[in-house]
Write a protein that binds this DNA or RNA. Structure first.
Length: 562
RNA sequence: UGGGUCGUCGCCAAGCGGUAAGGCACGGGGUUUUGAUCUCCGCAUACCAAGGUUCGAAUCCUUGCGACCCAGCCA
């Protein structure tokens, strides 16, 4: 397995830290535990889009394999046809690849249905599984509670031949959905509820997105997963903490069947990110009930959403490495993710000027018929990224925020009678503020100092630098400013997580003007709009004659306003 | 109060018996034609608590306390 070529590959300075799984693998390698092999897999169920929590697992699984010259498969855990779909499957493949990973083999648990069935027959023959006719309700009652042991089903000691016959007839479609199940015969008194004769096959007449109507019975996760791992020769089966209690079952199934490989299941804590949720059920609800505009809404913590918002694969990988791998319940602050994307974008995105909320400035002493092409560098620290020509003319647009009639303390932008530098251009001075009937500022009259292009004015210091565009030459654009989707750090704490939704998570600015060089910007291309943030040209929406930009993240702002 | 797991700085996280790495955040200097970047400095006598073992403990033992997960024919 490797990092795909079309993505920025992992650079050596992407620091890798120690974690307990790396230790285990290193130790296994040292002891030649699997003949020196490291084989992992990423096993999503295609019942939703991948999210940032999956990214953690993807980076871990593919990462461990890559670091150790091993393999990593993508395997769809598609054993519940009622919730799964081709759309989800395709989105998952797309997202894993976009993140920069390339699987060794692509598998589907459904490819193993026939083998799985065969193993089940074997279990029955060993007297280790039986067909049970208890209803779901009865089974729940028989299961016992956390503190009391369960009761054995009347069918538990059904003769092997009878279970075998029943199981064949289950497959043949002789029984209704839910009429009977196949159960592993383990221990109804086990303190671990998962070991109280878990169901391993249920009858479900549902169309499967891959096997169609070939089957009317489907294997359960616990039974399927371990065998699939074994079949693929997985050495380290990495999963999240909630499966810790299932490990004895994982091991039990493989022990009974004496499969060639017996992978080691290792559990790690799932990602919890402040102000977001990573429950596929809830994300699905946000989409279905239209609280967001689809799985790829830039506010969604999905890979597709992050991508559309302008996040890079590298930043997400960096994030996954930084947060570490442990078994501890932990909450990651948003600032970590934001730091990662800012770092990547700061280094790699070209700078450009865009005025989000324009204020007109007429430069009175600038010739009306003149246009200058000012050469401005695309990146202050990386001259190799080149320069562009930005037209300058008599009427320019600046940000409304960059002018203040009553400036707060330490304000260093434009004020009445004050001077400010137009980035890459001249120093201007404001002489007159023009307002409409309602007292709103509509225009500023300024003059420019002709001797300040590329040099500081003589005898005085101009501290402020603001961005601008030429009114005549600029392009109309829409900016979508995204904030956090939730207003609370842990939406799951609420009775209803929807109550934690942030009503102001999207602000649309539709009268923006961006510099002319953006005319041929490609969808998904990322820029730093100087002084306002990082933006990405939207890949989906097309507004007639207008460029649509999604704000990925703001620039850090250390200015202490009052 | 059955079973499983976890408790090191505001948030992550190294550490595995030899005397508390690192990152994010935060605070403060410097550079800067982005209040960005960059850079320098500061930031746990302390590792859930209490006992014990040891020359020496975050690391070993004991007992507490706190948190999370499990009673789907979901994964």
């Amino acid at each position: 397995m490797s990092i795909t070529e079309n993505q920025e590959s992992l650079s050596p300075n992407e620091a890798v830290g120690a974690n307990f799984i790396r230790h285990i693998i290193a130790n296994d390698l040292k002891e030649n535990k699997h003949n020196g092999r490291v084989a992992t897999r990423f096993p999503p169920e295609p019942n939703g889009y991948l999210h940032i929590g999956h990214a953690k697992s993807i980076c871990l699984n593919f990462g461990m394999a890559a670091e150790n010259n091993g393999t990593c498969n993508l395997r769809f855990d598609d054993t519940n046809p009622e919730k799964e779909s081709v759309e989800f499957m395709e989105s998952i493949e797309r997202d894993v690849q976009w993140l920069g990973f390339k699987w060794t083999e692509l598998h589907h648990a459904s490819d193993y249905f026939e083998q799985l069935y065969g193993y089940a027959v074997e279990l029955i023959k060993q007297g280790k599984a039986y067909v049970d006719s208890l209803s779901a309700d009865q089974m729940r009652a028989y299961r016992g509670t956390l503190t009391e042991p369960g009761k054995e089903s009347p069918d538990r000691n059904r003769p092997i031949a009878e279970s075998l016959d029943l199981f064949h007839r289950m497959r043949a479609g002789e029984f209704a959905d839910g009429q009977c199940v196949l159960r592993a015969k383990i221990d109804m008194a086990s303190p671990n509820i998962n070991m109280r004769d878990p169901v391993i096959y249920r009858i479900r007449r549902a169309h499967h997105h891959r096997t169609g109507n070939d089957w009317c019975l489907y294997p359960m996760y616990d039974y399927t997963h371990c065998i699939s791992d074994a079949l693929e020769g997985i050495t380290h089966s990495l999963c999240t903490l909630e499966f810790e209690d299932h490990r004895p079952l994982y091991d039990w199934v493989l022990d009974q069947l004496q499969t060639t490989y017996h992978p080691q299941q290792i559990e790690f804590a799932r990602l919890q990110l402040e102000y977001t949720i990573v429950s596929k059920r809830k994300l699905n609800q946000l989409v279905t009930e239209k609280h967001v505009n689809g799985w790829d809404d830039p506010r969604m913590p999905t890979i597709a959403g992050l991508r559309r918002a302008g996040y890079t694969p590298k930043a997400i990988r960096d994030f996954c490495e930084r947060i570490g791998i442990t078994k501890k319940d932990s909450w990651i602050e948003m600032s970590v993710l934001e730091y990662c994307i800012r770092t990547d974008l700061n280094e790699n995105s070209p700078r450009v000027m865009a005025v989000l909320q324009p204020l007109r400035i007429v430069i009175e002493n600038y010739p009306a018929d003149q246009t200058e092409l000012l050469e401005i560098g695309n990146h202050p620290q990386r001259p190799e990224l080149g320069k562009r020509n930005v037209p300058f003319s008599k009427v320019v647009l600046i940000e409304q925020d960059d002018f203040a009639e009553n400036p707060p303390p330490k304000y260093k932008r434009l004020i009445s009678g004050g001077e400010v530098r137009l980035r890459g251009a001249y120093v201007i001075k404001c002489h007159e503020v023009i307002k409409d009937a309602d007292g709103r500022i509509t225009e500023l009259r300024c003059t420019y100092d002709t001797d300040t292009l590329g040099k500081n004015p003589e005898g005085r210091k101009v501290k402020g630098v603001i961005h601008w565009v030429s009114e005549e030459h600029s392009l109309p654009a829409e900016a979508r400013l995204y904030g956090r989707l939730f207003k609370l750090p842990n939406p799951d704490n609420e009775e209803n997580f929807l109550d934690a939704l942030n009503p102001d998570s999207l602000e649309i600015l539709s009268n923006c003007r961006v510099e002319a060089s953006l005319a041929n910007a490609q969808p998904e291309s990322r820029y730093q709009f100087e002084r306002t943030g990082y933006f990405c040209l939207d890949s989906v929406d097309d507004i007639d004659g207008k460029l649509v930009f999604n704000r990925t993240v703001t620039l850090r702002d250390n200015w202490e306003k009052d």
